[in-house]
Structure formats: C-alpha cells, structure tokens
C-alpha cells in the first residue's frame, strides 16, 4: 500500500452523471480492490479500481461536491490498493452493474469467465462492450431471466444491489460490493462496519465484497 498520485488520461462521460476516468499510471491490484481519493471533504473517498481498454480506471457517479471534484481534477492524491479483493468461485458468473461501475466490470470480464449486464435509468452517452437494459421494469425482467450461472456479482447503489440480491439469491450465490462510508480505508478507524451474521465486519479490510446472504436476510 502506498500514498501516491494518479494523473488523469481521459474522462469518458458515460451518462449525464457517470464517468470513467482512465489514468496514465499502471497499478497491480486484485479485482474489486479500491483506492482512497482525496477530495475537499475531511476524509478520502473509496473508489474501486478497474480497467478500461488497457488503462487503469475508476468509475465515478457525481452525486455531490466530492465526486464532482474528482471528475474535474488532472491529478488525484490517493492511497491503495486496499481491500481483500474478490476472486469469484469456479464456473461461469454474471456481473450486474450500474454505468458508474463499468471500469470494475470491464476488469472482471477480462479476468474471469463472466457475462456483464448494465442496468441504467439514463441513456448511455458512450459505446460500451456490454449489454444494457434501461429502466427499472426492464432491469427486473433481466434479473428474472438470468439462469445457468454459478455465481452473481452485483455492484451499484444500495437500493439496486438489494433488488438484485432478492431476485437472484435462489439461483446461485450472490456477491455484493458494499458501499459503507470510510475514513481511512486501511482498518484503522473501524468506521466502515457492517452487521453480518458472523458479527461486525469492516468493508475496507474484510471486503468490500461479501456474500449477500452473510449480510442480508
């Protein structure tokens, strides 16, 4: 783990508020590991590492001043890579993600045998190499139609993840990327706790990916 800077190579607008930022630097990481990025807030914010056509990348959904700041910068102060990362079980998987998580989806798709499905409520402004469904009803229809997979990995908003978990849990193990607030990202502050069936876990050092049924009923 290091404290370093990343310089922006390209900022691709995927939807009105979602971006893929690619970097000039390279970094070794395990899928779903993340970096903590400095913003105007008093704490850094976690962003999952990914790849976009051979470049190191992150996905950002602009939801406030901190995320807007990240999209505007040419260089970012960060530390990482952090977290356990996610090595999927054997067999074929399906990843369900929002447009803001395209970089992590691209990376996972490159490394493992998994199909990627993107659910979006907004029109995509960029061409992407994955299937996209638009709208909530279509998203639910997609999830209901998925079959024959040995595992699922879901990454997006809390609400989207819960909907996907509920619809997929009977079909195969569902892995969820959790979005808890973090301050340090390295296990020092104990701020990113989640209640699981095995007691309190910390998203930064025990996750960020957990089996959904370990956390949710």
């Amino acid at each position: 783990m290091e404290n370093f800077s990343l310089t922006t190579k390209n900022t691709l607008k995927v939807t009105e508020n979602s971006f893929i930022i690619t970097f000039n630097e390279k970094l070794d990481f395990i899928p779903t590991q993340f970096i903590m990025i400095e913003t105007p807030s008093v704490v850094r914010k976690p962003f999952a590492l990914g790849e976009w056509f051979n470049d190191l990348a992150i996905g950002v959904e602009v939801i406030g001043k901190g995320t807007a700041y990240i999209v505007e910068q040419k260089a970012l102060k960060v530390h990482g890579p952090l977290g356990k990362g996610f090595v999927p079980p054997s067999g074929k998987g399906a990843m369900i993600a929002t447009p803001a998580c395209l970089a992590i989806a691209f990376d996972l798709h490159q490394r493992y045998d998994c199909d990627v499905f993107i659910g979006s409520v907004e029109k995509l402004l960029a061409e992407i190499p994955f299937e996209v469904v638009y709208g909530n009803d279509e998203f639910v229809e997609l999830l209901e139609s998925l079959s024959g997979y040995d595992w699922f990995y879901v990454v997006g908003s809390d609400q989207m993840e819960k909907v996907a978990f509920d619809l997929l849990r009977q079909k195969a193990p569902v892995y969820i990327s959790f979005n808890e607030y973090m301050a340090c990202g390295i296990g020092a502050c104990r701020g990113c706790a989640i209640q699981t069936k095995e007691g309190i876990k910390h998203v930064c050092i025990d996750g960020p990916v957990f089996r959904g049924d370990l956390v949710w009923n």
Binding site: S41, V42, V43, E180, R190, G191
Partner: peptide, 12 residues
C-alpha cells in the same frame, strides 16, 4: 464490538 453502523459522516 462498537456501535451499530452507520458510524461515519463527513463534510469539508
């Protein structure tokens, strides 16, 4: 074990 989540909230 500490308090139940959420445990953090931050601004500038």
């Amino acid at each position: 074990e500490g308090n139940l989540p959420p445990r953090l909230f931050a601004t500038q």
